[in-house]
Design a protein around this nucleic acid. Structure first.
Length: 743
DNA sequence: CCCGCGAA
């Protein structure tokens, strides 16, 4: 059972399992008087036997089972008059000694601490406590009583304890006062309340609708909200009317509030291609830094005089490979450029080229670091190059000591002051890297390090804001080779030619019936779902001999809805792996998992151990890995899951890192390829039916692609290129830097 | 509507 609710837990520390002095990350056993609970999280300097009061939530961990994840940890406070006296007289609270402690406890008894916290003015009754002293004590109390006052204040407005925890972490005991002074801080990106909720609180605190704080917050809110839509900035003439509408105020009010915001550098205004744009400072800084660093790298590290023909010829002999002309050009340019982009669709020989580049750098004695934005891509890069590749996050070493846990972007240990040693940094699947992460990567590279970016900008854009690879390519300044000669797939493959058409905004050929790309018309969802199930279970295995589990993959744009992964997985499980007396099953989070089911790991888990068929041991399963449940042991609450040639033991709780995978979203499929892909489509929606998503889905198929759905859904997806157009100034900033650094 | 990363 998984609970996602903030609760309070009290008890004594029975045993400390693990504790990192550096980060405060601690694992301990807490005795609540009824049971032992495993507690994990940031708890600084706790010792065994100590009484703790914890705020957090229960979550099941794949290997350690049910545990309590701490958001906030406090020492418990004594409850009886006697204990309170001992506590107060010990000097725990500044301003209170034994004498005052005795007077307080004599006056208030068991309720002393409660009264001091919630009715502090009553302390004036106590002889020796001046208003000045009381003010000092109150401040101390708020530090000790902690999050409770913030929670109590916010609970009056129906705001969740989680938000209170964030406020406490950011402002401590002063949180309530800070919020009372400017409730709109609640809807800033690091606290994350909706504007309307913050607005309601402000109203109850007698803020007016034309208050400058309100209008400035509204403008910021629209900007940070659009960060989630992928935009690093917004045109002024779009942002201001949107803010005015949200705030229900006139444009004059918005204009004057904006002037104040700009003056105080809350926002940055920049004219790009003759048009005025507004930025949050963080994103503005990131784009300017990226532009400056990229151009600097190109200018300082490019060594065109170095001739690569002989080394490449030597490598061809060594490896017994003949590189195509484009590949040779790419290899040569990569070795002499400060920044280099290698691009091209699937099957165009990017990997072979990359391997040659790495070999030649290593031959020169250069240290090469390999990384990718996802765990799965990193693992694949490791396999394809025979060298260790990491996620960018792991390469840069995530910094958990940063106290601002509520920040939008992760902080890293590697940076300008502690740069990576690598002479060459190679990033694969660059299309998934967003602006802030790329800035962090560049800052962590030493100034003499070359950068090689590999990717396909026609695939899905990054989750985070920006479209970095596309901006770099569109700037037309960065040396690039596009591989488009198809090695893996025959040139006459309709999958390949249609993929090309889609990228170019042309309609694919959906008429041809004797190639590898098929279109089956269907106008009703139940019929489409039925056709998909029939193709998987009967027709494709029958006609082509494809294995329903390993060769065929159903991809769909959405999770929800009648043709979403949730519903399709239920139907396909019924069709491909129905209940059977000899097949054990269990239910987790409302989903039935059965022996023989196809599942996907949905988070990186570096600790999950596996055994290979050849007996080899190791660890690590990655987000996007697809496997099969081989067996289920109900009494032990364990199951065996097989991923290709590796086998892992999962606890039932481990199912929270798994999903049924008969159907997966196109997003999740990025980075994988399948023999056969079935793509059911329905009535097109603007948000999810767009060109890059369609291209990504089509190019996942190696031998066969079948689209089932209405004809106009195909047409709509090719035409809809809006989704991938993201506002960003990066391209323009690169061009400026080129001009500036020229002289 | 879709979604990446991370200390035992």
């Amino acid at each position: 059972m998984q609970q996602r609710e903030m609760v309070t837990l009290q008890g004594s520390v029975e045993h400390i399992v693990f504790s990192s002095e550096e980060t405060g990350f601690t694992v301990l056993e807490l005795n609540t008087g009824e049971e032992l609970v495993t507690v994990v999280g940031e708890m600084v300097e706790v010792s065994e036997g100590e009484e703790l009061r914890l705020v957090g939530e229960y979550a099941s961990h794949p290997t350690y089972g049910l545990q309590f994840k701490v958001s906030l940890c406090e020492r418990s406070l004594p409850a009886t008059a006697n204990a309170i006296y001992k506590y107060l007289s010990s000097g725990a609270i500044k301003g209170i000694g034994p004498v005052i402690a005795k007077r307080l406890v004599d006056a208030f008894g068991d309720e002393t601490l409660d009264i001091m916290e919630s009715e502090p003015q009553r302390m004036e009754e106590i002889r020796g406590l001046t208003p000045k002293k009381i003010a000092v004590i109150r401040q101390e109390l708020s530090r000790v009583f902690g999050v409770r006052s913030v929670m109590m204040f916010l609970s009056r407005y129906g705001i969740a304890p989680m938000v209170a925890v964030k406020i406490w972490k950011k402002w401590g005991g002063a949180g309530v006062d800070v919020i009372k002074e400017n409730p709109y801080l609640l809807c800033a990106y690091d606290i994350g309340l909706e504007f309307a909720d913050a607005d309601e609180i402000a109203r109850s605190l007698d803020f007016h609708s034309d208050d400058t704080l309100r209008i400035r917050a509204g403008i910021q809110y629209v900007l940070s909200h659009n960060l989630q839509n992928g935009h690093t900035c917004l045109p002024k003439d779009k942002l201001l009317p949107a803010a005015a509408a949200l705030l229900d105020v006139g444009s004059e009010e918005v204009d004057s509030a904006l002037a104040l915001s700009l003056e105080e550098n809350e926002l940055i205004e920049e004219v790009i291609e003759g048009k005025s744009f507004l930025y949050l400072p963080e994103l503005y800084g990131a784009e300017r830094y990226i532009a400056g660093r990229i151009v600097m790298n190109m200018r300082l590290l490019t060594t065109p005089e170095k001739k690569m023909d002989a080394p490449i010829a030597k490598l061809e002999l060594q490896k017994g490979i003949q590189y195509a002309a484009r590949q040779k050009k790419a290899i040569a340019q990569a070795l002499v450029s400060g920044v280099f982009i290698l691009t091209g669709g699937p099957g165009t020989g990017k990997t072979t080229t990359l391997n040659a580049i790495i070999d030649l750098f290593e031959e020169q004695g250069d240290t090469v670091a390999l990384a990718a934005p996802t765990g799965r891509a990193a693992k694949r890069l490791t396999e394809l190059t025979g060298r260790e590749a990491k996620t960018i996050h792991r390469l840069l070493e995530v910094d958990f000591t940063d106290p601002s846990a509520a920040r939008s972007s992760v902080k890293f240990k590697r940076g300008e002051r502690n740069p990576l040693k690598a002479d060459v940094v190679i990033i694969d699947e660059m299309s998934m890297v967003d602006t802030l992460l790329f800035e962090s990567l560049l800052r962590a590279m030493k100034l003499s390090a070359r950068l090689i970016l590999v990717g396909d900008s026609d695939q899905l854009p990054s989750v985070g804001a920006g479209n970095v690879l596309k901006s770099l390519i569109d700037s037309d300044c960065v040396p690039m080779v596009r591989l488009d000669e198809i090695f893996r797939q025959a040139a006459e493959s309709l999958i390949v030619t249609n993929a090309h058409a889609i990228v170019g905004g042309e309609q694919p050929d959906i008429q041809t019936r004797d190639n590898d790309f098929f279109f089956m018309e269907s106008y009703s969802y139940p019929k489409t779902a039925q056709m998909v199930a029939d193709l998987c279970a009967r027709r494709l295995p029958g006609t082509y001999g494809f294995s329903p589990l390993w060769d065929i993959q159903v991809l769909t744009p959405s999770r929800k809805g009648e043709l979403g992964t949730m519903e399709l997985n239920r139907r396909l499980q019924e069709a491909l792996n129905p209940p059977h007396p000899e097949k054990a099953e269990f239910v987790f989070n409302g989903v039935t998992y059965r022996q023989g089911d196809k599942v996907m790991q949905i988070r990186n888990n570096y600790d999950m151990t596996w055994t290979r068929d050849n007996g080899e041991h190791g660890s690590g399963v990655y987000n996007g890995d697809i496997g099969e449940i081989l067996s289920i042991d109900r009494p032990a609450r364990m199951m065996q899951v097989r991923f290709e040639d590796r086998q892992c033991a999962y606890s039932f709780d481990g199912a929270n890192e798994l999903e049924l995978a008969y159907a997966v979203t196109v997003h999740k499929s990025q980075g994988s390829e399948f023999e056969a892909v079935i793509l059911p489509l329905m009535h097109p929606s603007r948000r999810l039916y767009y060109r890059n998503l369609f291209y990504t889905a089509v190019t996942r198929a190696k031998k066969l692609l079948i689209i089932v759905g209405p004809r106009r859904a195909v047409q709509y997806m090719v035409d809809n290129n809006k989704k991938t157009l993201r506002y960003s100034g990066l391209k323009e900033f690169i061009l400026w830097e080129m001009e500036q650094q020229e002289g």
